[in-house]
């Protein structure tokens, strides 16, 4: 463990990689591992990329990453893909678009599976960010799963959020209004080389005009195939980063993380609650106690007995 922590501080890639796995698999061991070596003030700022599958998130990251890295940032990339709810396995394919960039610029990139998490990220995301902070990373681009309205967890960790869309997604834009649209700081209409980019921009502008209050949201047109609009987009990201207080994001991220872990620990305590207390079932069946009261009582008694 000591050697691992030392390697992490040195920025050894194998050690970074191992630590992220430990964060995924053994949160308790991870907590011991980072003791004394992590500094909350160094948690990297996160640029979150979300949007429907196939709209070009990975392709965009591949072109944005070198620009952001060239501004003197130590940049990492984390790309999330969904795990199959049936097998628990996952096809982690975001490298297909990014490998060329990653390989030529030597940027550290890691693919992470959701492993059952619902909000478009993985439970280990915060620990992965902490790991990268120990190795000196100050900026991380996170590609979230981005499949719909529920994928808003990125809000908890990212200081700038890009919602990537593509022409022809009119209906998706309509459907998205309730969730993902609200969290975006920058709307990116990628594939602007294709027909319909103008209409997409109009649809978003129309949507923004329905919002009340002052609007700081930006709209970018990009094309990865023509390599157009990427520099402007990078400029918008920096502009947005300058306009916000990054400290408040760390607080938000920490509170999300503590809530998540506390819930997880509680749910472990709840597992098998009835099996351990068979009398509760017979009491319910006899009508002596209703399910709500039974649950409250069981939790209370187990707490008293230090369960």
């Amino acid at each position: 463990m000591k050697a691992l922590a030392d390697g992490l501080k040195r920025g050894d890639r194998g050690c970074i990689a191992r630590c992220i796995s430990i964060a995924e698999d053994e949160p308790e061991a991870f907590s011991k591992l980072i003791k004394g070596i992590y500094d909350p003030n160094r948690i990297p700022r996160v640029i979150g990329i979300t949007g429907p599958p196939g709209c070009g998130k990975s392709s965009l990251i591949a072109q944005l990453a070198p620009i952001i890295a060239s501004h003197g940032n130590k940049l990492g990339i984390i790309a999330i893909d969904a795990s199959s709810p049936f097998s628990g396995g996952s096809f982690l394919g975001n490298r297909i678009r990014m490998e060329e960039t990653v390989s030529s610029s030597n940027i550290f990139m890691r693919s992470i599976a959701t492993r059952g998490a619902k909000g478009g990220l993985a439970a280990s995301i915060m620990s992965a960010l902490i790991t990268l902070s120990c190795a000196g990373f100050d900026t991380v681009i996170v590609e979230s799963v981005g499949a719909g309205q529920a994928d808003v967890d990125i809000l908890d960790i990212a200081s700038t959020i890009l919602l990537v869309l593509a022409p022809g997604l009119g209906d998706e834009i309509q459907a998205m209004k309730a969730g993902t649209m609200e969290i975006a700081d920058i709307f990116v209409i990628n594939k602007s080389d294709l027909e319909g980019a103008y209409q997409a921009k109009r649809a978003i502008t129309a949507y923004l005009s329905t919002l009340s209050g002052p609007q700081s949201k930006m709209i970018a047109n990009t094309s990865c195939t023509k390599k157009e609009g990427i520099k402007d987009l990078a400029g918008m990201i920096e502009k947005h980063e300058k306009s916000i207080n990054t400290k408040s994001f760390i607080e938000r991220a920490f509170s999300m993380e503590v809530n998540r872990i506390a819930k997880e620990l509680l749910s472990r305590r709840v597992d098998g609650l009835l099996a351990r207390n068979p009398h509760a079932m017979s009491n319910m069946l006899k009508g002596r106690v209703d399910p709500y009261s039974a649950a409250v009582k069981l939790l209370d008694t187990e707490k008293k007995h230090g369960k």
């Binding site: 097998s87 628990g88 396995g89 996952s90 982690l92 490298r95 490998e99 693919s111």
Partner: peptide, 10 residues
């Protein structure tokens, strides 16, 4: 994937 593995395909 169906056998429960996380497959990294570059």
């Amino acid at each position: 994937r169906d056998a429960g593995m996380e497959v990294i395909y570059p």
